[in-house]
């Protein structure tokens, strides 16, 4: 038996809890997360409102729960966009001739040098601020790091003798990419996806804070932070709760990524 590695376990538990919270929020939250009740504005945590209420009297716990859906949604969209573009680009770069590969990777570097948030703000300005546009932008901005990692993995696969054997048997490049390269870089894709997920969650929070992310009234951890600004001294808990939620989620996905990387690393793998 291989021993379980702690960061993998902790990461998986955190991510699992977030997914569970999001699922539960579809069927049950303590209160309607968007229900405004001026009578109980800025209530302190109590038995009826575990984490208190915000400036509109909305239940903070309910908002956090529903906000986890936004967090997962943005992660999925951003990582999906990044992987769908980044993986083929990386494999293509690894399999093409030297000059073509150079062209692909240098344009990749160009995009890498472009700040992700700026790109998202530009997208927001052009297509209107929404969770989807913001996340497509974040996804596009993470394509280069995906392409880079996948390319280096694919290059290693291309150097193996089983790819040579496949070529000697007459396999052409496209089937080689599909049958040999892609299955052997899946572990890299998984690792990169969980790390990018964390980046996307953070980016969404930042964009919502700046007003370019999830528009109201959909609850989002980032916007909860932004709305708590004016009460930073009178009711700091309003900033603390979403802040902690974001930190834990980012930590969870990063730990999961690290754990998966250790697990897939052939040097650490038990040779049977």
């Amino acid at each position: 038996m291989r021993r379980l590695n702690p960061s993998l376990v902790v990461g998986a538990v955190i991510v699992g809890l977030i997914v569970l919270t999001a699922l539960v929020s579809f069927v049950w939250t303590p209160y309607d997360a968007t229900l405004v009740d001026p009578a109980i504005r800025l209530a302190k945590p109590s038995w009826s409102h575990w984490l208190g209420t915000d400036k509109f009297g909305r239940d903070v716990l309910s908002q956090l729960m529903v906000g986890s859906r936004t967090t997962l949604f943005v992660g999925l969209v951003a990582v999906g966009v990044a992987a769908v573009i980044g993986v083929p680009v990386g494999i293509l770069a690894a399999m093409s001739r030297r000059w073509a590969s150079e062209v692909i990777m240098r344009s990749n570097d160009l995009l890498l040098a472009f700040p992700a948030l700026l790109l998202a703000i530009m997208f927001g300005a052009v297509f209107g601020a929404s969770t989807l546009t913001a996340m497509v932008a974040i996804g596009i901005a993470t394509v280069p790091s995906f392409a880079r990692v996948i390319r280096s993995g694919a290059l290693q696969v291309m150097r193996t003798e089983y790819v040579l054997a496949a070529r000697a048997a007459g396999r052409t490049p496209f089937p080689i990419a599909l049958r040999h390269v892609l299955p052997n870089v899946t572990s890299l894709i998984t690792v990169q996806a969980s790390v990018s997920f964390a980046i996307a969650v953070l980016a969404e929070a930042a964009l919502s804070f700046l007003g370019y992310g999830t528009p109201p009234p959909t609850p989002s951890w980032g916007r909860m932070l932004q709305e708590s600004q004016e009460f930073l001294f009178s009711a700091p808990r309003l900033a603390v709760f979403p802040g902690v939620a974001i930190a834990i989620a980012v930590l969870g996905f990063n730990l999961l990524g690290d754990g998966l990387r250790d697990r897939f690393d052939p040097k650490l793998e038990d040779r049977r």
Binding site: T160, E161, Y162, R179, N184
Partner: peptide
């Protein structure tokens, strides 16, 4: 080690 695709 490297002459057979580990995923097949």
């Amino acid at each position: 080690m490297s002459s057979l695709d580990p995923r097949m």
